[in-house]
Amino acid sequence: MLAVPPLAAEQILHIGPLPVTNSYVNSTIALVGFVVFALFIRAGVKKYGGRAPKGIVNFFESILEFILGYIDNVTHDRKKSLKFLPIVGSLFLFILISNWMGLLPGVGSIGIQKGSEFIPLLRPANTDLNMTLSMAVLAVVASHILGVATIGFFKYANRFIKIGDLYHAFKSLKPVNILTAIIEFFVGLIEIISEIAKMVSLSLRLLGNIFAGEVLMTVLAGLVPYLVPLPFMALELLVGFIQAVVFAMLALVYLSMATVETHGHAEAGKGEAEAEAEENQVPAV
């Protein structure tokens, strides 16, 4: 019998008030793995000091260089890249690893039978909207915090509630300016909605892709268990990587957009246009 996983992650047990779901188990395993990995890297960095690194540190450095190169392409500023690297890199590595963990044998297939229902013990972390939404919220909130920290609270707030621009327009007493400012004011209000849309689109995109992959794997394994799912497995590897890249890239674009300094009215318009162009470009990936 085919057991297609439901959209909501299944609950396995309760720890205190927390309902432990199978995808939560997966993300916790990933957490433990990352902590161990981080300890190794920390020890390695201490061990090699200023000398040439070896083994895992060397390998990780090459990955880091690769990620930094991509971040540089968006920010065009090494200092900014280094500031964004921890957030973007963590998102990328975590999403990539948990996506690929979902392809390991046993994930989704080992579980407990509760009456007629089969509940797998492990389920890819990103097939749970709680996980993807928490990452999306973290990324967007981080972009706002960094934005405020870089360009100041009032300047940053003026992007969304453009009272400052409105005031300047009325002071200039030119009707065209006033009209533009009023339109801009409503555009600013729409920006607030777009911030929420960012979180929703980020989290649902990742959830949809990985969940669809999981359903596809289950269905294929149910129909033809041998060999046929293999190419789809390979495709899932690719999808897992691409989704990690897309999530991290979008988070990076949001971060860099939030920290773009805008001076005056004319330049503010230009900066937004650039940011919009950037935003339109990246999702096309």
Binding site: F37, P86, S134
Partner: peptide, 19 residues
């Protein structure tokens, strides 16, 4: 919390020192 711990651990022990 899970992702926050991962973020923190990677931030403090991996990304910043290696970078």
């Amino acid at each position: 919390v899970n992702f926050g711990i991962i973020l923190l651990v990677l931030w403090k022990w991996v990304f910043i020192p290696v970078a």
